[in-house]
Design a protein around this nucleic acid. Structure first.
Lengths: 297, 297
DNA sequence: AGAGTTGATACGCACGATGCATGATGTACG
DNA sequence: CGTACATCATGCATCGTGCGTATCAACTCT
């Protein structure tokens, strides 16, 4: 069905229904009385229904008019809301930010970032999940997510910015012979069994650590692999071996595990924000303002 | 804030968003491409927000466009609904019928009437309540209710139509000396105590019954009054006296109370529908179609 | 490189909404 | 009871705006 009905007619109708007097309503609408009279007539013609009963030159809403008034008010209200929402989405105040991150970002960087973003954009829905580095870059390129947080690696076709440089530390069981030392060197651990990230899920982490060991003159004996930090720390606590982790580290089992600085001059482990330059999401823009702003100083 | 936004623009926007091709969308809308192009531009100008990203002469919805599309669809949907509802209200298919009735209508007439009306108008909300005759006529004149159902009395300024003529019957305790007789005359009850409707709430009922008794040659001894039929029947069941009621009668205490026809040639007790001729409610019109239709044969 | 799409812009026209003047009808009040 | 006032509808001229035709500009595909 094709109605010629327009919001302009609804706006007029609501005012006339409010005043129940065409002349006064016309003044409020900056129109003349005849013009408004014809608008109402046109609306009634469109609907095929009388909205006002002209009883003795006086306007009264009909039952159909009462019903339509309620709906017209709601309609105008919702139209305004739709406009406001579109504008807010445009400004990035409203929408969804799809953010993925590696586990080691969860301990310090992520809470700090999200806290600041939440405060500035309370109406943005945050779609959060952990994801490995490789899958993040894929998802970013295909536009399935907006922001990635991962360590190492240049991502072709993606923009990145380092937001944190964190040292590697050694995780030792409290009962370990070196646990009393404040700093240790990698070479000290040459004979120890290692617990490391599963190579299958993220080869860079595994390979980099093994590379550091070789540079220190030994081939690490990896007795156990695990897919997440928590498990690795638990295994270290249980005495299955030592490990190398990125600081800040999880505070589980503080009685059973200690973290020690490394005296070796290892390059810092960089945490980067990554996004696609093709992604025009205003919410992403807001997020990047936050990330780039303070760092550009 | 004054938006020039009109539904016409929304209708166009939805189609363009659907096709993502101005030319094809224009064909569907029976417009030319330039015209539609300008409509979209005008809409974007109104909102102050780009709805489409023109990337390489190809249309893609922006985030704001996505948001606005959802709302625009909903808005158009609701606009149609508002029109349909107004039309249904006009036809009396939608709305409220405010119906009041005296107690004696509840046993047979009311269920029959409402059953038929409900079947024909399932979306009309029925606002039902018992109300005394006098208060019904007041409420009808003041437009507070649509239909009244009461007995006796001409109501000035109201239209009425008799829909049921019911005989008076005598209510006797089962243990009464006349309970075995099939028909009795009023004069037989000359010495019995009477239980009647409270005169204060409805004088016509009380006075008419007393009038019948006098015509039968005795002054009834009213030992007890009560405001509703149920109570009266209970009192008769308890042996406090006899009563005269309109048939059909409530089926409470069938062991303790019997109803007997009267041999006197009393005028039937008429039940009327009443309404105000000023009331333009389409729902009322539908109701009257039902009431008048079958009766006019 | 050239043909074919596709969206934006220019220009003239025509329809429609507006304002002014007036008519029709009802109300208030002396 | 009649006249002045109020209120909504209608006739008519005008102005604005949205539309179509023609054309341009930019990108795609072969």
């Amino acid at each position: 069905m094709m109605y010629a009905m327009e919001l302009r007619l609804l706006r007029s109708f609501v005012v006339v229904a409010d005043e129940l007097n065409v002349g006064r309503a016309a003044t409020r609408l900056h129109l003349t009385q005849p013009s408004l009279s014809r608008q109402i007539a046109a609306l009634e013609h469109d609907l095929g229904v009388e909205l006002f009963a002209r009883v003795k030159k006086r306007f009264v809403l009909t039952a159909a008019g009462e019903s339509f008034l309620v709906d017209a008010r709601q309609l105008l209200e919702r139209a305004d809301e739709a406009v406001r929402d579109a504008q807010r989405v445009h400004r990035g105040e409203l929408g969804t930010l799809r953010l993925r991150f590696v586990q080691s970002a969860t301990f310090e960087v992520l809470p700090r970032l999200l806290g600041a973003f939440r405060a500035a954009n309370p109406d943005v829905v945050l779609d959060l999940e952990t994801m490995t580095t490789i899958r993040q870059t894929e998802a970013l390129r295909e536009g399935r997510i907006d922001v990635g947080l991962f360590r190492l690696g240049v991502a072709r076709g993606l923009e990145t910015r380092v937001i944190s440089r964190d040292p590697l530390v050694a995780a030792l069981p409290t009962v370990h012979r070196l646990a009393r030392r404040k700093r240790i060197s990698l070479a000290d651990l040459a004979e120890d069994p290692f617990v490391l990230y599963t190579r299958a899920t993220g080869p860079t982490v595994f390979d980099t650590i093994v590379g550091h060991c070789r540079a220190a003159g030994f081939e690490p004996e990896v007795t156990q692999e695990a897919a997440d930090v928590q498990t690795i720390v638990s295994l270290v606590a249980a005495g299955l071996g030592v490990s190398l982790l990125v600081a800040p580290t999880p505070r589980i089992d503080p009685e059973a595990v200690v973290y020690r600085e490394l005296s070796d001059d290892l390059p810092p482990w960089e945490l980067s924000v990554a996004w696609s330059p093709e992604n025009r999401s205003p919410v992403l823009a807001r997020f990047l303002d936050l990330v780039r702003g303070p760092e550009t100083r």
